[in-house]
Amino acid sequence: MRNTLNKMNHLQKYCLRIADNSWILGNRLGEYSSKGPFLEEDLAITNVGLDHVGLSEAVYKYVAELDGTKSADDYAFRRAEHEYFNIQLVEYPNEDFAYIMARQFLFDVYQFLFLEALVDSKDNTLAALAKKSLKEVTYHIRRSTQWMYRLGDGTEESHFKIQGALNELWMYKDEMFFMDETDEEMMKAGIGVDLNVLKTKWEDKVTEVLTKATLTVPENPLFSLQYGKNGHHTDFMGYILLDLQYLNSKYPDAKW
Protein backbone atom coordinates (compact mmCIF):
# COMPACT_ATOMS: atom_id res chain seq x y z
CA MET A 1 0.00 0.00 0.00
CA ARG A 2 2.98 2.24 0.62
CA ASN A 3 3.49 3.19 -3.04
CA THR A 4 -0.03 3.25 -4.26
CA LEU A 5 -0.78 6.35 -2.23
CA ASN A 6 1.76 8.34 -4.20
CA LYS A 7 -0.55 8.14 -7.14
CA MET A 8 -3.50 9.13 -5.09
CA ASN A 9 -5.41 12.01 -6.52
CA HIS A 10 -6.26 15.15 -4.64
CA LEU A 11 -9.86 14.23 -3.98
CA GLN A 12 -8.89 11.01 -2.26
CA LYS A 13 -6.30 12.73 -0.15
CA TYR A 14 -8.76 15.45 0.70
CA CYS A 15 -11.31 12.87 1.84
CA LEU A 16 -8.76 10.90 3.81
CA ARG A 17 -7.86 14.01 5.77
CA ILE A 18 -11.47 14.44 6.79
CA ALA A 19 -11.81 10.78 7.69
CA ASP A 20 -8.48 10.49 9.49
CA ASN A 21 -9.20 13.49 11.71
CA SER A 22 -12.36 11.87 12.98
CA TRP A 23 -10.89 8.38 13.06
CA ILE A 24 -7.93 9.26 15.24
CA LEU A 25 -9.97 11.53 17.49
CA GLY A 26 -12.65 8.85 17.78
CA ASN A 27 -10.00 6.42 18.93
CA ARG A 28 -8.67 8.84 21.49
CA LEU A 29 -12.16 9.38 22.85
CA GLY A 30 -12.81 5.64 22.94
CA GLU A 31 -9.62 5.19 24.91
CA TYR A 32 -11.13 7.37 27.64
CA SER A 33 -14.13 5.07 28.09
CA SER A 34 -14.56 4.01 31.76
CA LYS A 35 -12.22 6.80 32.89
CA GLY A 36 -14.59 9.79 32.92
CA PRO A 37 -15.01 12.16 35.88
CA PHE A 38 -18.56 10.92 36.43
CA LEU A 39 -20.73 8.36 34.76
CA GLU A 40 -22.90 10.69 32.67
CA GLU A 41 -19.86 12.45 31.24
CA ASP A 42 -18.11 9.17 30.54
CA LEU A 43 -21.03 8.09 28.38
CA ALA A 44 -21.34 11.48 26.70
CA ILE A 45 -17.71 11.40 25.59
CA THR A 46 -18.12 7.91 24.14
CA ASN A 47 -21.15 9.22 22.27
CA VAL A 48 -19.06 11.92 20.65
CA GLY A 49 -16.40 9.32 19.88
CA LEU A 50 -18.99 7.14 18.19
CA ASP A 51 -20.09 10.03 15.99
CA HIS A 52 -16.50 10.48 14.87
CA VAL A 53 -15.97 6.82 14.10
CA GLY A 54 -19.25 6.88 12.16
CA LEU A 55 -18.19 9.88 10.10
CA SER A 56 -14.78 8.40 9.36
CA GLU A 57 -16.33 5.12 8.27
CA ALA A 58 -18.66 6.91 5.86
CA VAL A 59 -15.81 8.88 4.32
CA TYR A 60 -13.50 5.84 4.11
CA LYS A 61 -16.27 4.02 2.27
CA TYR A 62 -16.43 6.85 -0.21
CA VAL A 63 -12.66 6.79 -0.75
CA ALA A 64 -12.83 3.03 -1.22
CA GLU A 65 -15.48 3.57 -3.85
CA LEU A 66 -13.35 6.16 -5.63
CA ASP A 67 -10.38 3.85 -5.53
CA GLY A 68 -12.15 0.61 -6.38
CA THR A 69 -9.46 -1.76 -5.05
CA LYS A 70 -9.48 -1.25 -1.29
CA SER A 71 -12.06 -1.41 1.47
CA ALA A 72 -12.94 1.13 4.13
CA ASP A 73 -11.19 -1.09 6.68
CA ASP A 74 -8.06 -1.11 4.52
CA TYR A 75 -7.93 2.65 4.86
CA ALA A 76 -8.71 2.67 8.54
CA PHE A 77 -6.34 -0.12 9.55
CA ARG A 78 -3.77 -0.90 6.90
CA ARG A 79 -1.70 2.15 6.13
CA ALA A 80 1.75 3.23 7.19
CA GLU A 81 1.95 6.14 9.59
CA HIS A 82 2.93 8.67 6.91
CA GLU A 83 -0.14 7.66 4.90
CA TYR A 84 -2.51 8.95 7.55
CA PHE A 85 -3.37 12.60 6.94
CA ASN A 86 -5.03 13.76 10.14
CA ILE A 87 -3.95 16.98 11.80
CA GLN A 88 -1.65 16.55 14.76
CA LEU A 89 -4.04 18.08 17.28
CA VAL A 90 -6.23 14.97 17.36
CA GLU A 91 -3.27 12.76 18.23
CA TYR A 92 -2.63 14.55 21.48
CA PRO A 93 -3.00 12.15 24.42
CA ASN A 94 -5.83 12.21 26.96
CA GLU A 95 -3.57 13.76 29.54
CA ASP A 96 -6.48 14.81 31.72
CA PHE A 97 -10.03 16.09 31.33
CA ALA A 98 -8.77 19.61 30.62
CA TYR A 99 -6.67 18.41 27.69
CA ILE A 100 -9.50 16.26 26.39
CA MET A 101 -11.94 19.15 26.45
CA ALA A 102 -9.50 21.75 25.14
CA ARG A 103 -8.61 19.44 22.23
CA GLN A 104 -12.29 18.81 21.65
CA PHE A 105 -13.33 22.44 21.71
CA LEU A 106 -10.58 23.63 19.35
CA PHE A 107 -11.38 20.80 16.97
CA ASP A 108 -15.17 21.10 17.24
CA VAL A 109 -15.10 24.75 16.23
CA TYR A 110 -12.88 23.89 13.27
CA GLN A 111 -14.93 20.87 12.21
CA PHE A 112 -18.20 22.71 12.54
CA LEU A 113 -17.04 25.57 10.32
CA PHE A 114 -15.44 23.16 7.89
CA LEU A 115 -18.55 21.03 7.48
CA GLU A 116 -20.77 24.07 7.31
CA ALA A 117 -18.79 25.19 4.27
CA LEU A 118 -18.52 21.67 2.83
CA VAL A 119 -22.32 21.42 2.65
CA ASP A 120 -22.04 23.54 -0.54
CA SER A 121 -19.45 21.26 -2.11
CA LYS A 122 -19.94 20.32 -5.74
CA ASP A 123 -19.10 16.77 -4.74
CA ASN A 124 -22.56 15.45 -3.88
CA THR A 125 -21.34 12.67 -1.62
CA LEU A 126 -19.21 14.99 0.47
CA ALA A 127 -21.98 17.55 0.61
CA ALA A 128 -24.44 14.94 1.86
CA LEU A 129 -22.00 13.59 4.43
CA ALA A 130 -21.29 17.11 5.62
CA LYS A 131 -24.97 17.84 6.00
CA LYS A 132 -25.54 14.74 8.11
CA SER A 133 -22.48 15.20 10.29
CA LEU A 134 -23.14 18.88 10.83
CA LYS A 135 -26.07 17.96 13.06
CA GLU A 136 -23.83 15.82 15.23
CA VAL A 137 -21.07 18.39 15.35
CA THR A 138 -23.55 21.12 16.28
CA TYR A 139 -24.18 19.06 19.38
CA HIS A 140 -20.47 18.43 20.02
CA ILE A 141 -19.62 22.12 19.89
CA ARG A 142 -22.47 22.95 22.22
CA ARG A 143 -21.11 20.46 24.73
CA SER A 144 -17.47 21.47 24.54
CA THR A 145 -18.40 25.16 24.67
CA GLN A 146 -20.30 24.55 27.90
CA TRP A 147 -17.28 22.76 29.30
CA MET A 148 -15.07 25.74 28.48
CA TYR A 149 -17.44 27.87 30.58
CA ARG A 150 -17.60 25.35 33.41
CA LEU A 151 -13.88 24.80 33.62
CA GLY A 152 -12.87 28.39 32.90
CA ASP A 153 -15.39 29.89 35.27
CA GLY A 154 -15.58 26.99 37.74
CA THR A 155 -12.88 26.84 40.40
CA GLU A 156 -9.42 28.34 40.54
CA GLU A 157 -7.97 24.90 39.93
CA SER A 158 -10.09 24.15 36.89
CA HIS A 159 -9.38 27.60 35.45
CA PHE A 160 -5.67 26.98 35.81
CA LYS A 161 -5.89 23.52 34.26
CA ILE A 162 -7.97 24.42 31.24
CA GLN A 163 -5.88 27.51 30.55
CA GLY A 164 -2.74 25.36 30.74
CA ALA A 165 -4.16 22.81 28.33
CA LEU A 166 -5.23 25.49 25.85
CA ASN A 167 -1.78 27.09 25.98
CA GLU A 168 -0.16 23.74 25.35
CA LEU A 169 -2.41 22.75 22.46
CA TRP A 170 -2.33 26.16 20.84
CA MET A 171 0.76 25.25 18.82
CA TYR A 172 -1.32 22.77 16.82
CA LYS A 173 -3.96 25.23 15.68
CA ASP A 174 -2.25 26.70 12.62
CA GLU A 175 -2.30 23.39 10.85
CA MET A 176 -6.07 23.52 10.59
CA PHE A 177 -5.83 26.50 8.25
CA PHE A 178 -2.74 25.60 6.31
CA MET A 179 -3.57 25.33 2.61
CA ASP A 180 -1.43 23.17 0.40
CA GLU A 181 -1.78 22.13 -3.22
CA THR A 182 -4.54 19.65 -2.45
CA ASP A 183 -6.59 22.26 -0.64
CA GLU A 184 -6.07 24.77 -3.45
CA GLU A 185 -7.05 22.27 -6.13
CA MET A 186 -10.15 21.19 -4.28
CA MET A 187 -11.18 24.75 -3.66
CA LYS A 188 -10.74 25.66 -7.30
CA ALA A 189 -12.85 22.68 -8.30
CA GLY A 190 -15.62 23.89 -6.01
CA ILE A 191 -15.28 20.74 -3.91
CA GLY A 192 -13.13 21.96 -1.02
CA VAL A 193 -13.30 24.69 1.56
CA ASP A 194 -11.39 27.99 1.73
CA LEU A 195 -9.42 27.57 4.94
CA ASN A 196 -8.46 31.25 5.04
CA VAL A 197 -12.08 32.20 5.49
CA LEU A 198 -12.40 29.51 8.11
CA LYS A 199 -9.47 30.84 10.05
CA THR A 200 -11.06 34.22 10.76
CA LYS A 201 -14.33 32.65 11.77
CA TRP A 202 -12.55 30.15 13.98
CA GLU A 203 -10.57 32.85 15.74
CA ASP A 204 -13.72 34.91 16.32
CA LYS A 205 -15.64 32.01 17.77
CA VAL A 206 -12.81 30.75 19.96
CA THR A 207 -12.09 34.24 21.25
CA GLU A 208 -15.76 34.78 22.02
CA VAL A 209 -16.08 31.54 24.00
CA LEU A 210 -12.79 31.78 25.84
CA THR A 211 -13.50 35.37 26.83
CA LYS A 212 -16.90 34.45 28.17
CA ALA A 213 -15.22 31.58 30.02
CA THR A 214 -12.90 34.13 31.71
CA LEU A 215 -9.95 32.54 29.87
CA THR A 216 -7.15 34.17 27.92
CA VAL A 217 -6.61 33.50 24.25
CA PRO A 218 -3.04 32.15 24.11
CA GLU A 219 -0.21 33.90 22.25
CA ASN A 220 0.29 32.80 18.69
CA PRO A 221 2.89 30.05 18.28
CA LEU A 222 6.31 31.31 17.24
CA PHE A 223 7.16 28.64 14.72
CA SER A 224 5.20 26.44 12.40
CA LEU A 225 5.47 22.69 12.49
CA GLN A 226 5.53 19.96 9.97
CA TYR A 227 2.00 18.99 9.37
CA GLY A 228 0.01 15.82 9.97
CA LYS A 229 -2.17 16.56 6.98
CA ASN A 230 0.85 15.70 4.85
CA GLY A 231 1.74 12.61 6.83
CA HIS A 232 4.14 14.06 9.40
CA HIS A 233 2.99 13.10 12.85
CA THR A 234 3.78 13.56 16.51
CA ASP A 235 5.54 10.95 18.62
CA PHE A 236 2.14 9.92 19.90
CA MET A 237 0.88 8.69 16.54
CA GLY A 238 2.99 5.56 16.34
CA TYR A 239 1.53 4.28 19.58
CA ILE A 240 -2.01 5.03 18.51
CA LEU A 241 -1.42 2.95 15.39
CA LEU A 242 0.33 0.20 17.29
CA ASP A 243 -2.88 -0.45 19.19
CA LEU A 244 -5.20 0.33 16.36
CA GLN A 245 -3.48 -1.96 13.87
CA TYR A 246 -2.49 -4.65 16.34
CA LEU A 247 -4.81 -7.46 15.21
CA ASN A 248 -4.61 -6.58 11.52
CA SER A 249 -0.84 -6.57 11.45
CA LYS A 250 -0.38 -9.60 13.68
CA TYR A 251 -2.93 -11.73 11.82
CA PRO A 252 -3.00 -10.31 8.29
CA ASP A 253 -5.00 -13.24 6.90
CA ALA A 254 -7.68 -13.30 9.54
CA LYS A 255 -11.18 -11.89 9.21
CA TRP A 256 -12.90 -10.72 12.35
Partner: peptide
Protein backbone atom coordinates in the same frame (compact mmCIF):
# COMPACT_ATOMS: atom_id res chain seq x y z
CA UNK B 1 -8.42 6.52 39.94
CA UNK B 2 -11.05 7.72 37.48
CA UNK B 3 -13.14 8.97 40.39
CA UNK B 4 -10.21 10.73 42.07
CA UNK B 5 -8.89 12.19 38.82
CA UNK B 6 -12.36 13.55 38.15
CA UNK B 7 -12.77 15.27 41.53
CA UNK B 8 -11.58 18.66 40.29
CA UNK B 9 -13.89 18.43 37.27
CA UNK B 10 -16.89 17.72 39.47
CA UNK B 11 -15.89 20.55 41.80
CA UNK B 12 -15.66 22.93 38.84
CA UNK B 13 -19.02 21.83 37.46
CA UNK B 14 -20.61 22.25 40.85
CA UNK B 15 -19.13 25.71 41.38
CA UNK B 16 -20.20 26.82 37.92
CA UNK B 17 -23.67 25.31 38.38
Amino acid sequence: KAHDDGAWVRAAAEAYG
